[in-house]
């Protein structure tokens, strides 16, 4: 019984992280139509950012998002403007460019750290919340709460704010959005920044639990792709629910089958869902075509 609960809390932790990363990835894909291979690198930057913040100021990693999230928003916006915008008329090259960013980032971190693994300490690690007879690690509760809040915040932002509506308009029909007077390139920059910032947030939340290595981002990018497609392209709620489906599946498969098979099991579930519901759990069938129907 306790084993199962332990596994479930691990699954919730992973699921929350995947959900945050996937909400950003889904936003970038839905709006800019770029499959962002560098999304895992933004998680890595979040991890190392939390480390740098602790080294420089002694800051607890759970407070690091206050610095890391704005920095990654700016970094994402700059990467979009400098690298991806010039390739705007060639979507395939944009995808290759994000893969290039991934390679550059991993090797730069390897060179800078000399391959030494880092870790950060948090005062909150080891604390737990009692739920009747069950003890749940505080770090898990924090991740669950932040993932829920972030998903709700992004969904409300897209639904109700002027900028959020502009983002949705660009996702649905970029030519019509231009005719409304929306600066489509600015919306792309904003969206890429938000996606990077969310991944950075996930990195900070993970930092007390994971040992940092240059390739750590790879652990998140593949599951995040699965989450986006599983949850439904363009659906924020889908990315949230999909995140937990994938996180729990991974934790359960790792325990009951074999840790080496956990990614295989994720992708079997992923394929099974797509066979039954080709548009994903929460996707709108054909939604991706709406955005693709005009590339002007």
């Amino acid at each position: 019984m306790l084993d199962v609960l332990n596994i479930l809390t691990v699954g919730v932790l992973l699921g929350g992280i995947y959900a945050i990363v996937a909400v950003g990835l889904n936003l970038i894909f839905g709006v800019i139509r770029v499959v962002n291979f560098a999304q895992g690198e933004f998680v890595t930057f979040g991890l190392y950012g939390a480390y740098a913040a602790q080294i420089a100021t002694g800051m607890d990693p759970y407070l690091a998002p206050l610095i890391v999230v704005p920095v990654l928003f700016v970094l994402g916006a700059v990467i979009y403007i400098v690298i991806l915008r010039p390739l705007q008329n060639d979507p395939m090259m944009q995808v290759f460019a994000t893969f290039g960013i991934l390679m550059v980032s991993q090797n730069a971190i390897l060179a800078l750290t000399g391959g030494v693994a880092y870790s950060v300490q948090s005062a909150f690690i080891g604390m737990s919340v009692s739920l009747g007879p069950i003890q749940i690690g505080l770090s898990r509760v924090i991740v669950l709460a932040v993932a829920t809040l972030v998903t709700a915040a992004v969904a409300l932002y897209l639904r109700h704010t002027r900028n959020g509506k502009a983002i949705r308009a660009v996702a649905q029909d970029r030519t019509a959005a231009r005719l409304m007077g929306i600066r489509v390139e600015t919306v792309y920059t904003l969206t890429f920044g938000i996606g990077a910032a969310l991944a950075g947030l996930a990195g900070c939340l993970l930092s007390p639990l994971y040992t940092m290595t240059p390739q750590i981002g790879m652990n998140f990018i593949l599951p995040a792709f699965a989450v986006v497609v599983l949850g439904g392209l363009g659906s924020v709620l889908g990315a949230f629910v999909g995140g937990f489906v994938v996180g729990l599946t991974e934790a359960l498969a790792g325990f009951y089958l074999d840790p080496a098979l956990k990614h295989a099991v994720i992708f079997i579930v992923f394929i099974a869902v797509l066979v039954v519901r080709p548009s994903g759990l929460f996707g709108v069938a054909g939604a991706e075509e709406v955005g693709l129907r005009d590339q002007n």
Binding site: D173, T175, A176
Partner: peptide
């Protein structure tokens, strides 16, 4: 524009 091009999911 031709066909109106409304935002269909709004």
């Amino acid at each position: 524009p031709e066909g109106g091009r409304l935002f269909p999911f709004m």
